[in-house]
Amino acid sequence: MLREWKTEWMKLKRRKAGLLVLAFLGFTFLWIGWVVSDADALDLADGYRWMFSNLSMINTILLPTMLAMLASRLCDMEIKGNTLKLLCTLEKKGTLFDVKLLTGGSFLILYVAAELLLLLAGGRLLGFGRPMEARHAAYFLLQNISVSLVIYLLQVMLSFRFENQIIPLAAGLFGSFIGLFSWFFPDTSLFRWIFVWGHYSLLHFTGYTWDEATRVMTFYDVEPSRAALGMVLALLVFGYLICRQLFVRKEV
């Protein structure tokens, strides 16, 4: 498996996959910077909760598109170059599928971890009132990594299925819109549950109240839905098993 994974990184030379991830990270923090630019002392007092709330929504919008582009970068080189016929005589098809997930998953984990680190650094720089709570960091990782992995799995399948990468990329953009809309529905709404892109909002861990008179937002903790988490993890496990089996069974 290590050998196959090593060749996956060799293949990624000049594919600018790292640059793609960095570009999205840069854009995310430009967005965050814009949000913070008109912050007052009250906002900064509970800065981390405020930022987690914003970052969760920004990720819901940007991550599906980024994951679609990443999956396409990783998979369409096999389609374009007709390489599956060669690779399948050199490595197990299941292993090839696994290393595609592992590589994309590594980029994703690094991305979310980098967000968290940049948030910490930004918090210190701006002097956020309260320290970052460990459980918030854990919830953030869980929310973004688990849902994104399910989406990435779907995108890998689409990128392998369609020679024309416009279709998987369109699916990514569609997912971004669905994800954004899902935040405007309550937890009980079917809209949040039936679309995988809506699961970011299902796993939210902060909420807020808005006082119109004082124009003050007050953030509070929300226990992430265990049912939603269970569903996302089940989707991840069963989705992986089904997609892998479909990939292995497909003749090249």
Partner: peptide, 29 residues
Amino acid sequence: LRKTGSLIESPSYYGHLTGRENLEIVRTL
């Protein structure tokens, strides 16, 4: 198949890599 080489239908290659880099991938595998 480790003792077999194959070229089925059209050639397999990574267009963004050089000829040598393509061969390095096969050699590693």
